[in-house]
Design a protein around this nucleic acid. Structure first.
Lengths: 342, 342
DNA sequence: AACCGGAATGAATGCGCAAACATACGTCTC
DNA sequence: GAGACGTATGTTTGCGCATTCATTCCGGTT
């Protein structure tokens, strides 16, 4: 026992440390450390005594101290615009599950859609010395980029693809997705389109690509309704009602930036007695679990979020292991799921 | 400068520490520490030099080391059954916001509805030495309780109330809520009720209380459908279809354990041509934002989740400041929001 | 018998910071 | 002008652990 003084101080504070356990088991602190991280290097009898001491005291290792000493925190931070938005939280599901199995903890934070707020959060998160970081989207402030590159940890950007990723990015092209829906709508022979778009930069990129492709494929005109806040069923209803009332939208195709908005449109169209898809065709985005369950079932754009989370996790693992990745941009694509609504 | 050796080692590793900053600014490490935590104790000129050095190097403080030295991590962990379930994630919203303003970071984890999994997560979370912990629900394994009481940190349990909280609990009585809906349904003169309940222990307590109160208030019989997995719109539709097909449920009141399930019931009832609320009355739980936006608008039980998050945060703050609280159980109640569906 | 090599353990050190204590140099008071 | 006090800084120490480098003890070799 090397640290009589230390353990006395601990006792006064009531804190149980590795030294406490060691003293109870008749070994030194190092042996306890080994028993927990590399048990094969400790004899079975010693291991048993150590575990007994841990059981008796209810000892919980101090990961802060461990991380400080080893320079590995086994912590991965994730930054999403909104945890209440199922698009992002479901993506995290696959991601966390895989990394949890590797012994990593995920620390989550919500940055809204504001790059400045994101920058502040990146700074506080980096102060916890994570072993890796997951970001949503590819647009970050210059200061954020600088901090991240200086941090020298793997950074995975998801839900979009970029020519110039910070490190690795996994996602799909929002422009391609919007354009694909625009062509789909145009080919169905609609003359008029309505876009309902939430306050999300990526949604607006899809909208712009949609409008361009719709016009190119024979569409005549596009009515545009942008929503200020977060998407919700009520916002979708309201936006559609507004398009009908203010813009005289009575026939055509509606492209919503999320299934939630599209669902709101379905409800409002039904309330107004408009036939879907006969009079109004509705297309959502995201293929949420309810998209197939609504009436009529929703035509939408599917992005495999579970797969996205899994691939992001796999890339994170490989980067943590120090592998230099050949491809740093992974495009997972999307698909249009055609159901009854359009 | 006391630590020439240390700084040399740092330089080799490329790590910027307080000593690095101090050297650049011509002061000691302590002064840098003071500049960041108590700037009023440092002269303006020194402060300026320190900030300049921080800017140049892109220094980010190491919160792990700070927490280890000060024994305060400025970290609060929260454990919820599911982050994709908006009931819990919206509750966290108010909670995080308040504590973030106090300089606390929130670390989130998802435990499903499994106490064993919760126990494992509590252990890993405690290893990060949080300054406080938020738990969902009041049922935890004995080992969990022991760890938490031993950790000597504030623990706030939310979304339920208990006779024997670990520390503080903030919520409402699920039994009282279920009973209130049961009476409400009985008084409307329905003879038959259908309960659709997700796999959630609290939801089942509400269901049982509902059935008891419904019978007491004149109800004749209760059809019971329990769902295995998580609630969703599709599951609600399916459960209602099953009740109609297998149990011959054609008239009466439906009490769902969540608004999501209730929404599914609305859609299925409409698809089957059943009038709501004329033939079938539907009652949800949670008062989600879409409850008012669906057709017909959903009658439901409202729990002020924002308020709940805020109160939980306030209690956490006070306990962290060391105040011994008079009341450790706070019942926030609930209310039945009567809309068109029942 | 001298040697080797592996298994099990321990001593010493430092991760980056905050807290306690110490010092230097003023300014104000009687 | 001696003491008291305040402001700005520095020195020292240790938080609890992982890492590195010994050390001891063993059975097996030659």
């Amino acid at each position: 026992m090397s640290d009589g003084k230390t353990t006395r101080a601990n006792a006064a504070l009531g804190a149980v440390t590795m030294s406490t356990i060691g003293r109870l088991a008749g070994v030194s602190q190092v042996t306890v450390s080994r028993a927990l991280s590399t048990p094969s290097k400790v004899s079975p009898q010693t291991l048993e005594r150590i575990h007994e001491a841990i059981r008796q005291t209810g000892y919980v290792p101090n990961a802060l101290a461990g991380a400080l000493a080893s320079r590995r925190s086994r912590l991965i931070t994730a930054l999403v615009p909104s945890i209440t938005n199922i698009v992002y939280s479901s993506l995290l599901h696959g991601f966390s599950q895989i990394l949890r199995n590797d012994g990593y903890q995920i620390m989550l934070a919500e940055c809204g859609f504001d790059p400045e707020e994101e920058e502040r959060l990146i700074a506080t998160m980096l102060s916890r010395r994570p072993d890796g970081m997951l970001l949503t989207g590819i647009h970050h402030t210059p200061a954020s980029r600088k901090m991240l590159m200086g941090a020298d940890i793997p950074v995975v950007e998801v839900w979009d693809i970029s020519e110039t990723p910070i490190d690795v990015c996994v996602g799909f092209s929002h422009v391609a997705a919007g354009a694909a829906v625009g062509e789909f709508a145009g080919q169905q022979g609609h003359a008029t389109a309505l876009t309902i778009t939430a306050a999300d930069e990526r949604a607006h990129r899809r909208r712009a690509a949609f409008a361009e492709a719709f016009a190119r494929t024979g569409g005549q005109n596009v009515v545009r309704v942008d929503c200020a806040g977060a998407a919700s069923l009520g916002v979708g209803r309201g936006a559609f009602a507004q398009a009908v009332a203010d813009h005289g939208f009575t026939h055509g195709v509606v492209f919503c930036s999320s299934d939630l908005l599209a669902h709101g449109v379905l409800i409002e169209a039904q309330a107004q007695g408009m036939a879907v898809p006969g009079q109004v065709a509705v297309i959502g985005f995201g293929d949420q679990d309810y998209a197939a369950a609504v009436e009529p079932a929703l035509t939408t754009v599917k992005v495999d979020r579970d797969e996205l989370g899994r691939v992001a996790a796999a890339q994170m693992q490989r980067r943590i292991l120090g592998e230099t990745l050949e491809t740093s941009v992974i495009d997972l694509g999307f698909s249009i799921i055609r159901r009854a609504s359009a």
